[in-house]
Design a protein around this nucleic acid. Structure first.
Lengths: 330, 330
DNA sequence: TTGTAGGCGTTATCAC
DNA sequence: GTGATAACGCCTACAA
């Protein structure tokens, strides 16, 4: 019925220690006994119990990803699916598994992390939706937990992270608009405490500076990545502008809606390249992020960290995709 | 440093058995000792080790969801994110956690299930993307594993499942078109071995029958849920038709593209209500599925099954959403 | 090269 | 009510 290591040992006429050695590819076993043991293992259909192994080795092979409540908006587009699938896939390559859970609105943000840590449920964490001064980071660092971050902040000096080149992408988009002779580019950014917002704003400003110009603070608005915020901010904006760059495709779609209603047409560039970017009319010019690679690299990084202690960080390239929303008939 | 149950027992002047009883809310402890033990637990910051507990109790509290390779298309829209989030959320309510992993193209489809089962990693499974004659079902049934299925087939008699009313939805959509005096409704279905395809076709046919009509086989085509297949099937269709109903919104979008190119306009209804359905032009009429509820109910069902042995199944209502793609100017 | 035996941290089964 | 103590299944000093 229940076949365990001592069952195998008995049938093979060896000790459990030897079976264990065979299981773990120890060189301290003669080829002969190894073969004999392997044969018995196969015959009995024995498979080591993962839980017992975890208890003994103090490693569960599980990596937790906790969806922050504040990040629920990411669920509204397929980015998250693709990301999470790649994470799971890469983890599985090395025998790890992804434990996915959510944070509730009224939860203590670090409560879940603490629980997983104290109960020794997981070996490491993947942190999403990084904020400036993120309390999860300080908690996990203090607790000496192993984790990798998606995104980066200034205090990420000693933390393994994977990020896309948000600054470069924003700079490229802004430069593209400047070179189309737009001068007053309305920049609708995400919430200010998000690390991506900070980098994207830097990129926007950098593009102006490269041209010997200076970005105007009044042209920088703060949205929340959602469609409605793009719509409302454009509708309510009273100053002059001749182009729009948004920190998400959804806000770009909202902005285009608003433009249509006020009967204006200026070039618009979004960020992300979600599927709607292609199907929306006009098709959206945008900055494409390699979300699948982000998933792969972050999973890879946590594995390397767990197994070698090395902290591997990466910044992945983004790409400006030009479609219809930047073709403007004057 | 590492505080365990015997540490607590020692400090509290009781046995580990008593501490364990307190931990598990056993009634076999006097209020007095219970309080004393709880105080010590708090003082020491003791938290039970989940792995040790799992080893002894033979329950890990983990539920696996394996993304079938054939279901990768689901990742291309946000349905999956929302579903998985609700699953994780509901599981966590009762102290369970979601283990998410993927199937590789060249994997033995049941290999992962077998591995999780043999190694005793999870307590149960949630099965996605159900097929007719699904070998995962027969394997898991034979192995006496606990699982709940999303979707349903004829052989689901004794299996707990959660499904949306695919037949009802398809019938409603088709009826709507018939009542708009369309007679030859082109039905672009999903792959034939998918359980959802079977139910949707039944609904399509039922709508005709209710009107005393008969659906023509030549009007039923097989796509693969993706946009391109909707596009190609419409482009290549040579018979007469006066409306289109597709088994996915993406195929509906493809169909609308094709119609535009051949300069025709007929009412089109999709299935799912993905975000593009709203933003596409014309906005898509479609059957909305309560994907979040599906996630909630399937998680709920596996918990009930694990804890009480009862098999709970549910069929959730869908809703016809009318937008622009069914308004046709003749 | 192999075996013995202790321990990982719990919970369950007995006794008392 | 409570306490010893034996599992749960595995790994790893240490001994042989």
């Amino acid at each position: 019925m229940r076949v365990n290591i001592s069952e195998v040992a008995k049938k093979a006429g060896v000790s459990t220690a030897t079976v264990s050695r065979v299981l773990n590819n120890s060189p301290l076993v003669s080829t002969k006994t190894k073969e004999r043991v392997l044969k018995i293992i196969e015959k009995l259909g024995y498979v080591p119990n993962h839980v017992a192994r975890s208890l003994r080795s103090r490693r569960t092979g599980l990596i937790a990803t906790i969806i922050p409540y504040s990040a629920e908006y990411v669920l509204s587009f397929p980015y998250f699916s693709i990301f999470i699938k790649e994470v799971a896939r890469r983890l599985a390559e090395d025998g790890y598994h992804l434990l996915l859970t959510t944070e509730e609105p009224d939860d203590d943000p670090i409560g879940i992390y603490r629980a997983f840590l104290d109960r020794k449920i997981v070996d490491g964490f993947i942190i999403l939706d990084l904020k400036e001064k993120d309390e999860r980071i300080s908690f996990l660092t203090k607790a000496k937990a192993k984790f990798v971050v998606v995104g980066r902040t200034k205090d990420c000096r000693d933390i393994p992270f994977v990020d896309t080149d948000n600054m470069g992408g924003a700079c490229e988009a802004t430069t593209y608009l400047l070179e189309k002779n737009c001068e007053r580019i309305l920049f609708i950014n995400g919430p200010e405490d998000h690390s991506v917002s900070i980098w994207r704003e830097k990129g926007y400003r950098a593009a102006y500076e490269r041209k010997g110009l200076r970005a105007e603070n009044s042209l920088i608005l703060t949205g929340n990545f959602r469609e409605e915020s793009g719509y409302k901010l454009v509708k309510g904006f009273s100053e002059a502008f001749d182009a729009i760059f948004t920190a998400s495709d959804l806000m770009a779609i909202g902005a285009l809606r608003a433009l249509k209603e006020i009967n204006r047409s200026v070039p618009v560039i979004g960020f992300d390249d979600i599927p709607q970017a292609q199907t929306f009319s006009p098709a959206l010019s945008t900055i494409r992020q390699p979300i699948d690679k982000v998933g792969y690299e972050v999973a890879n990084s946590i594995i390397v960290y767990l197994e070698t202690g090395k902290k591997v960080s990466k910044v992945l390239d983004v790409e400006l995709i030009i479609r219809e929303s930047t073709e403007v008939k004057r």
